[in-house]
Each structure stands twice: as C-alpha cells, then as structure tokens.
Design a protein around this nucleic acid. Structure first.
Length: 620
DNA sequence: GCCGTTTTCGGCCCGACTGTTTTCAGTCG
C-alpha cells in the first residue's frame, strides 16, 4: 500500500472524527501522523514489516496498529465504521474555506447538507442566509469557494504527480520488450499543476506493453485503447496515458508527448517552412494528423544501428557526456531539472537547425526564435546552488534541530545555510521572542567555530505586520546575517494596503529578501492582492532580493514574475523554506521555476560563493 | 492519541479576523 493512501486514510479519519466533535488533541495526533507518513522517505509497509514504524515520531501504539490493519487487510475498521455512520462526502464540505467541523455539522443537522452538490443547492436557494450565525456574505462566499474547488478537481501538484508517474512508469519499464520509458507532458515541463500523466515507452510490440498498464492495480477504467496508445482513469483521480513507439520513432514520440501544444505547433510550422516535414497541411488536417506526419518524418532519424544498444538505458547513458554541466540525478523517470535529453530527441532539434530546447522552455515563449539564433542559454542547474537562505528549525515550527539541518545541507554539497525561524508575532509557528532570537544567534556563532568549509548564517523570517512595519526592531535586524521578510497575516487587505506593507519592507535597509512575495498556496489560496510590478521595481531600486520559494505548493514568485524581476535587474534567491530535512530536497522545484523563467546562475543569489554573498548582502 | 534527561499522567495551540452579533462563535494561519 502506498504511503499516500495510508496518509489519506488517517486524514479522512481525522476529518470524520472532527465532524463528530472528538477531542481536539486526538484529531491533531491523527493529522500529524498523516503528515509524517506522507513525508517519509521509505515505504511505510517496509518500516512496518521491519518493526521500525513505531519509532517514527508521531506514531504510537494506536496509530501503529491501525496502519498495520491497513497494510494487512487493506482497510481500517474504525474508518469503515465512521464511513457507515456519516455521509462519506462530509470531508469535502469541511474542506471548503470558511467551513469547519462545527458549521459542517450544523449544515448537516439543519438542512441535511452533506456534500458540495447539496451545499451548492442550498446556497442557490438562499437557505444558508436564513440560518443562525450565517448571512448573505457567508452564502456568497460558499458559492465562490465551491466554484474554486470544482475548478481544481482532478488536478494535482507536481511532486505527487511525479510520484504517481514513477509508480506507473516503473511497472511499464518491466513490460516485455520495453527498452526505454520516459515521463513526458506537464511533468517533464515542470508545470506547477498537473492534469494528466503522460508516459512514452519504446518497444517493437505495443500490445503487451499496453496490457501491463491496463492491468495495473491503480487503474480503475480504460478510457481509450488504440494500437499503440492507452488512456486510463486511475485510483488517484488523474488520467494516465501511455504511448508506445517503435524504437526508431521514440525521439519524435517523446517530443510530441512533452509538448506544450503551442510549442509543437510552432515546431511543426518551422519544419514545414524549411521543407523538413511533409506538407499535406494545405487542406487543413487535424492537429493529430499533422502530428502524425511530423512523427513520420522525425521517426526516420535513427542514431545507432539496430542492436547497438546494450541495455534499457543505453541511449540515456550515451547522452551524458563529460563536457556537460554536472547533473546529480539522471533517472529518466524522476530527473532533476536540467537532466540531458535523450539523443534521439536532441537530434530532431539539431536536424531542424535549432539547439535542443529543454522541456521547461517548451511553452512557445520565444524559445524557437532563440533556438534558431545563437547559442543555447546557460540555464540554472541544481548543481549551481551553493546554499539555502530560508529554512526553519525546531526553535520555531521546524521539525529538526539546527545541526540536523546543517548536516543535511552539507550532504547536499552546500557551503552555507541560513536559519530563518519565524518572528515573535507568529504565535502558531512558535515565533521567536527577541531574547530567543538573540540566544539562537549566539548559539549559531558558537556552532560556526567548529564548522569547516561551511557557514551557518544567522537569520530571521521577520513578519511584515498587518498594521505595517516589521516584527523586530532595526537594531536587531542589523545584527542578523540574512533577513527574510514575509507576510503571514492580513491576507485580505486591499491592494494598496498590502502593496504598501511590502514596499515598506523592501525599503527597509536591513531587509535582504522578500519571501514568497505573493503568498499564494497552490490549490488552496489565491495570491493576495499585491502590485507585484511595483514591488519588483522597488526591489530593483533598493537592491533587494526576491525569493522563488521552492515549496511545491507555493512556487512563489512564479516563472512569469521571476522572469520579469530578472528583466528589471533584480536578483532572485531560490530557497526551500524547509520545515524538515526532507523538504530541503525541494530545491529542484525552485530551480525548475528559475529555468522556466530563463534564469542563469548569475541571476541567482545563492549560486554565489560565501564571500561574494556576504559582500552583496552588505554584511560587515 | 502521543509523548517524556520535568517519564505512565497531564499537557499539548493561541491570537487575529470575520461576519455575525450586540458580546461572540467559528475559522484560520
């Protein structure tokens, strides 16, 4: 059983218990377990079988037993009991912003509302406003939220998509006759949100490969099946499509499956204009047919004589030549951003007289024009990153100690790490008081004495207060290595007020970085109403750094604004905002955003060596 | 329900905001 399935079971259990009015701390324990399990590096099942699961913090006797039930029997008695007792759609009502357990219960008891559909109907019939404690505003807010939730149904964030794609691709790779598999589509382009998972496999015989996917235990229903293509609906709620190409046509198939649609369209136009692709387009053939023609042309490219391949990954390995920049992870199923293209695909661009366009740039944002002109840009790579300038420790709401975070940072090859715990106003996150902050900074200075070739930077993530101003006085910030400022309250203030708050932080001489500048939480919360252009202009004027927050549910700034910032001469910092060890690894997502924004190492603060970094931050 | 170099019970998450009130409950970060 997948970790995510177990995590979801505990989350559902917590939701239903909360609806029942169960003890707050018990619910919190289940939620925490769900979070811990989702964040584990190893399969829960393995830990369980080896008797190590009980040692994981947050997992005690009871949760261990319930997890065992899930693993052994595939279900949990307590959860099934609750599902029988209450309508199973209750959690979707509680998940709505503004509706918690109390209101969900109240709506259920007063109106019999137990699902989004039911709630929407009640709101449209103006029944909500008649209830005690609710009014017209609440009713309208409910309708708005429902619309938002509906619009994001069936869309998942990139890390989960990568994990699911990997699981499916792993099984395809073992299918008879398959010698190469890639994850393509949105995932390969590193889009923030994924609507479908696309896989491409190379094999002479498609039939047995398609059969393997059709029989996968996550597959609920086969939606489309053709000779060399299958599209299925999965347990995860996301469609998965597998295309099987003959080895000779693999490059073209991968290229076509990676997209985007506009990039492919332009690429085919480009090929036709140069007489490089068959042109039967005069009569206006459908997209698919044109793609087919292009594939037929591109498919003629064979790089190696048949039989030259010595194994499944031979093509892949051939692509990694020593003159490339170092790439840490070249697993084709879950690569890091900047992993090399397979040579068959690369060759198609070369034959068209273009440099091979990295998947992250295939969005029809002038990448073909650039590719037709000179040299490819030197885009940022994971290996360029020399440190992380925004992480949390167990001094505030992080899970790990400073030393644990430092150890992992060193293992990642970093040269520095800034510990930026929350400031005093952020109560929930156990924000540091002035005294605690200074105590922490003293400790860090001590720890640095025994660190060689590595520097722990003192820092703070200082709140930009709702009433304006910063949460710590200037003289304290002046003595801090890295001051990261960010908004955590007053999200609903109007554009002027919010922009003014952020501008004030930009103008403060002690602030170095504005973190997650727009405050969006993908799939959860819209960005607050901020005039980002003005913030970028101010950052340029005051030499301030803007963050690309790598957390996959933030990715903030996004590629659009990151590019705009760069064009204004603003440097970006790519930080993880990690609250535990594992999330230090999320740097890849921020790097992908930077690549999608066409950033190179020179545009990014934390590619700098420590002395240059300190100099730029104006530190004494 | 979990946890313990304050260890088998008692503590763990509090303050701001919102929409609804007329003094506050519910939600959220």
């Amino acid at each position: 059983m997948h970790n995510m399935e177990i995590s979801w079971a505990f989350r559902e259990l917590a939701d239903l218990l909360e609806f029942e009015g169960e003890d707050f701390f018990k619910i919190r324990a289940y939620r925490r377990a769900a979070k811990v399990i989702a964040g584990l590096d190893e399969p829960v099942e393995k830990l369980y079988r080896q008797g190590r699961l009980g040692k994981v913090p947050g997992i005690g006797k009871n949760i261990l037993a319930k997890t065992g039930e899930l693993i052994e029997k595939g279900e949990m008695a307590k959860l099934q009991e609750l599902r029988r007792k209450w309508p199973p759609t209750i959690p979707e009502v509680m998940a709505l912003p503004g509706i918690g357990p109390k209101r969900a219960r109240f709506l259920y008891e007063q109106l019999g509302v137990a699902s989004l559909d039911g709630l929407e109907e009640a709101a449209r019939e103006k029944k909500i406003r008649a209830l005690k404690g609710m009014g017209v505003k609440t009713e309208q807010e409910i309708l708005r939220s429902i619309e938002l939730v509906r619009s994001r149904a069936g869309r998942i964030l990139l890390p989960l998509a990568r994990e699911l794609a990997r699981e499916m691709a792993d099984c395809v790779r073992e299918a008879p006759g398959v010698f190469q598999v890639h994850v393509a589509g949105e995932i390969r382009r590193w889009e923030e949100i994924v609507e479908e998972i696309l896989l491409v496999a190379a094999a002479e015989e498609p039939e047995p490969v398609l059969n393997v996917l059709a029989a996968h235990r996550r597959v609920r229903e086969v939606l489309v099946r053709e000779r060399d293509r299958i599209r299925v609906h999965t347990w995860w709620g996301v469609p998965v499509e597998l295309r099987v190409a003959a080895p000779g046509g693999y490059g073209a198939a991968l290229l076509l499956a990676t997209g985007s649609r506009e990039h492919i369209r332009r690429l085919m136009e480009y090929a036709r204009e140069r007489g490089l692709a068959e042109d039967r387009a005069a009569a206006g053939p459908a997209q698919e047919e044109r793609a087919g023609m292009f594939a037929a042309w591109a498919g003629n490219i064979t790089l190696q004589p048949a039989g030259a391949s010595t194994g499944k990954n031979a093509y892949w390995k051939a692509a990694i030549s020593p003159d490339r920049h170092p790439v840490q992870n070249t697993d084709p199923l879950a690569p890091v951003p900047g992993a090399p293209l397979p040579p068959e695909e690369e060759e198609i661009y070369r034959r068209l007289g273009l440099w091979p366009v990295p998947p992250e740039l295939r969005e029809d944002r002038e990448e073909l024009e650039a590719a037709a002109r000179g040299e490819p840009p030197r885009l940022l790579e994971v290996g360029d990153i020399k440190g992380d300038l925004h992480v949390h420790s167990d001094w505030s709401d992080g899970a790990n100690s400073i030393l644990q975070m430092v150890k992992r940072a060193r293992e990642k090859g970093y040269r520095y790490l800034a510990i930026t715990d929350h400031s005093r106003s952020l109560g929930v996150a156990r924000g540091l008081s002035l005294e605690r902050l200074q105590e922490q900074h003293r400790l860090i200075r001590e720890l640095n004495e025994s660190e060689e070739d590595f520097r722990i930077l003192t820092g703070t993530e200082v709140d930009i207060l709702a009433r304006g101003g910063l949460d710590f006085p200037d003289e304290v910030l002046a003595e801090t290595d890295v001051v990261v400022a960010s908004v955590h309250s007053g999200f609903r203030q109007d554009r002027d007020t919010l922009t003014r708050r952020v501008l004030e932080a930009v103008e403060n001489e002690h602030v170095d970085i504005i973190a997650h500048p727009t405050g969006r939480l993908l799939g959860e919360r819209e960005a607050y109403d901020l005039d980002v252009e003005r913030v970028i202009e101010a950052a340029a004027k005051h030499n301030k750094i803007l963050e690309i927050n790598s957390s996959p549910d933030r990715l903030d700034l996004n590629a659009h604004y990151a590019r705009l910032a760069r064009d204004h001469g603003v440097k970006l910092a790519i930080n993880t905002d990690a609250h535990d060890l594992r999330r230090l690894d999320e740097m890849i997502y921020g790097v992908a955003v930077a690549r999608r924004a066409w950033l190179g190492p020179e545009d990014v603060l934390n590619t700098m060596d420590l002395p240059d970094l300190l100099k730029l931050l104006g530190r004494k």
